[in-house]
Design a protein around this nucleic acid. Sequence first.
DNA 1: ACGATTTACTTGATTCTTGAAAGGATTGTG
DNA 2: CACAATCCTTTCAAGAATCAAGTAAATCGT
Lengths: 136, 136
Amino acid sequence: MDNTDRMIIKELQDNGRMKMKELGERVHLTGQAAASSRVQKLEDEGIIESYTIRVNEKKMGYPVHCFLTIITDSLHHQPYFAFLETKQEYVRNNYKISGEGCYLLECRFPSNEELDGFLVQLNKHVSYKLSIVIRE
Amino acid sequence: MDNTDRMIIKELQDNGRMKMKELGERVHLTGQAAASSRVQKLEDEGIIESYTIRVNEKKMGYPVHCFLTIITDSLHHQPYFAFLETKQEYVRNNYKISGEGCYLLECRFPSNEELDGFLVQLNKHVSYKLSIVIRE
DNA sequence: ACGATTTACTTGATTCTTGAAAGGATTGTG
DNA sequence: CACAATCCTTTCAAGAATCAAGTAAATCGT
């Protein structure tokens, strides 16, 4: 993991579909074979986990973005997890945290109505504090 | 934006470097040209914003992951923003939120020592509540 | 300090992918 | 029904990736 590797990662974060030829040029390697084998190594080591796309969630129909601090007294979190499984469409991340609350749940919704419906059902399993994202 | 487009997006989220030929086969289009032109359209419409990689932040040297609820009485948030600019290495997201606090700040650190150093300086500008991620 | 070994890079040949162009099928419209 | 528009398929040429071989540089043990 030298400086060239770090440059490669930066370039691929900006453009994950970059041609190996161009990537090589940008990090000062001649030909695509050298760049290609470094990328392969980064994949094998698990430093590059996967290739993906950034999607415009607003244009995809999920403009409402929020974080929920989940609070529960119950020792059994399974019903909460089971509930999340049924709402995969909305759930983006569920972080187990220390601090206030047990989980930080990141969600996306088509509208406030759908958010409200979600909250009503969520409240059967846990308590929460809601933070709505105004600007990313 | 029909069902094929949604399938394409799902496939590219899983593998952003997929060959157009394979993508075509997976969504039941013959040849790469049809898949390619649909992807081009999704890019032009801004639904696909960019191609990127998922990086293992732990292996990159940033194992400590936390969220900070930022609280400030001051009307001037500029010093806070200026501070964040100098700490880009650690900052992953800064969401403006409604609810408790003004911002939800997502950060990554090499160690708790660096986190502590960050908090000391942060505290000169704003108050915060800290949540450390135990499991992603 | 020396040669041996490993690692990383370059080069060139072959195979594969992409992009462009042309033609065909389907749908909607007057 | 004819026409236009849209989307898909096919084909082919240009460009990129993969593989193998050769070279240079760094590392290791003595």
